[in-house]
Amino acid sequence: MHYILLIVGAALVNNFVLSRFLGICPFIGVSKRIDTAFGMGMAVIFVMTLASFVTWLINYYLLDPSGLQYLQTIAFILVIASLVQLVEMIIQRVSLPLYQALGIYLPLITTNCAVLGVAILNIQLKYNLLDACIFSIGAALGFALALIIFAGMREDLELNNIPRAFRGTPIALITAGILSLAFMGFSGLVK
């Protein structure tokens, strides 16, 4: 039950994009078509889970014992960036189709603040290792969900007669705001 609540809480109630407002750049940038949004979402799930696993270890076995918690941000960024590089190399060698499917999205995620955000939240909320992994899967699922819903809406928006001034990014931002309001309906469901 605890784990289900963790996932629901991270994916819906405190959705990373729509209520924590992390990772807005890919949310607007890669949401023009559903299939690219799907690719990005899968890559985020993959990287977020790995990153929170590694950063949790770094925090509790390196930073904590030496009393250097204030290095959290820079150390995490360093670790996430090199981890993504490593994973990219391994995937390219092991599974070329997967590499081609994730494509450009994998390196893009290196600088995604949602990934750093989940790593830091894991520490702030004092999760243990399993909790942290489950939480980050939930968060990534929420990110993918928001991205795909938004991409679907934008695909439909393309077919509508939007006033000239609102075409493109303006209407996308307004839509994102309304979508965010809708997700606020979950607030209070889980802490």
Binding site: I58, L62, L63, S66, G67, L68, Y70, L71, I74, A75, L78, V79, S82, Q85, L86, M89
Partner: peptide
């Protein structure tokens, strides 16, 4: 010194692995 060593160390290890 510790901070420099820590970040430098992580960087070095990451670079080695990569």
């Amino acid at each position: 010194m510790g901070a420099m060593l820590m970040v430098g160390g992580i960087g070095l290890v990451a670079a080695l692995i990569l």
